[in-house]
Nucleic acid binder design. Structure first.
Length: 324
DNA sequence: AAGTTGAGCAACCGCACGGAA
DNA sequence: TTTCCGTGCGGTTGCTCAACT
């Protein structure tokens, strides 16, 4: 017997409009993520449940950072891809802020090509992570090294998940991730998550206000406005560091009020907001959103600095070979 | 200025898995 | 044990836009 189709006929497809985003976010804020099957009916969205979940996890979920991958992140992705293969969700769990879809896209459109290029000739800045060009090793050595790396990763994870170690590893001058984790610990999980979610949607709407549907009517559809808002959102990283983006005064006020009523969210002033407040991995934020089971250790509490250090330590690769 | 091409990215599709009944 | 349901995941598609001719 076949499965029921996940989507009814007549569901809307294609890019999400800001209005739909608002509906979804406000619903999730009220009910929490999960039970996606009921989301379309409860919200009145003409969207497939999968589509709602995807939209939430890849775009509206709190703590998402978009575009502008750092060199550090690049290296981590390359390392992790070499270790884990195309297990993007697993890779994403090691990269706070990033979604598996984002990483997958980045890999497929950029990193893979760069690696292929560097492998097929000239030396590259990235290509020699596991490339024999700079570290001439045989296939067998490479496999051994990979196995060692996996073992080290396991060891690091085991150590990381040990509660005692975790405390000692959180040094005052630890990286921002650890700091963020600390802030998460000390904050009511749901509130910070949803505030951040509202933050996301508010940013999106700010972009939308710049290019409202009627204004963007040169192409006369809401898709364009959505894409514009996507683009504006994608530029948040730089925009937030350079200053608050300008918005039409009237529209801004109106939307501030809208947001106050919608989310109970006071401020649209991003200059006062730390960027995407919670630094959570995919799994971590899922944990955050769903529920926190007392006494359990989530990956959110993992000392990423340790893993990052290991993942980013290029020199270790060469050193590992000497172990054999 | 108009057409073409390629990169980037959001979203869709289908399969797999785990839990509940 | 089997079936069904909800969800997660990875591959792929299709749209948009910028660069190039």
């Amino acid at each position: 017997m076949g499965r029921l189709p996940c989507c009814d006929k007549g569901v809307k497809k294609g890019p999400w409009t800001p209005e739909e985003d608002i509906i979804l976010v406000s619903y999730i804020q009220e009910h929490g993520p999960g039970n996606w099957r009921t989301v379309p009916t409860n919200t009145g969205l003409c969207r497939c449940s999968k589509s709602c979940r995807l939209r939430w996890t890849n775009y509206l979920r709190p703590g998402i950072k978009r575009g502008n991958f750092t060199k550090q992140e690049e290296k981590m992705i390359i390392h992790l891809q070499a270790l884990l293969g195309n297990r993007w969700a697993a890779i994403a769990s090691y990269l706070p802020h990033r979604t598996d879809n984002d990483i997958k896209n980045y890999w497929n459109t950029y990193l893979k090509k760069r690696l292929e290029k560097s492998e097929s000739g000239s030396e590259g800045t990235l290509g020699n992570v596991y490339n024999s060009a700079s570290n001439p090793v045989t296939k067998g050595q490479w496999e051994k090294r990979l196995q060692t790396d996996i073992n080290m990763a396991k060891k690091a994870l085991t150590e990381a998940l040990s509660p005692k170690k975790m405390l000692s590893l959180h040094e005052p001058n630890d990286d921002s991730i650890s700091n963020d984790i600390g802030s998460i610990k000390s904050t009511t999980p749901n509130s910070i998550c949803y505030a951040s979610s509202a933050d996301n949607i508010a940013r999106l709407l700010k972009g939308w206000m710049k290019n409202p549907p009627n204004k963007a009517s040169s192409k006369s559809n809401s898709i364009v406005s959505t894409q514009n808002s996507f683009n504006n959102l994608a530029g948040i990283d730089t925009a937030s560091s350079e200053g608050t983006p300008s918005v039409g005064a009237k529209g801004s006020v109106e939307f501030s009020e809208t947001f106050k009523s919608l989310f109970g969210y006071e401020s649209l002033d991003y200059s006062s907001n730390s960027e995407f407040s919670p630094s959570l991995s995919h799994e971590a934020s899922t944990l955050c959103q769903d529920e926190r089971k007392p006494g359990t250790t989530s990956i959110a509490e993992m000392p990423f600095s340790l893993l990052e250090k290991w993942l980013l330590d290029d020199t270790k690769i060469g050193a590992d070979a000497t172990l054999f």
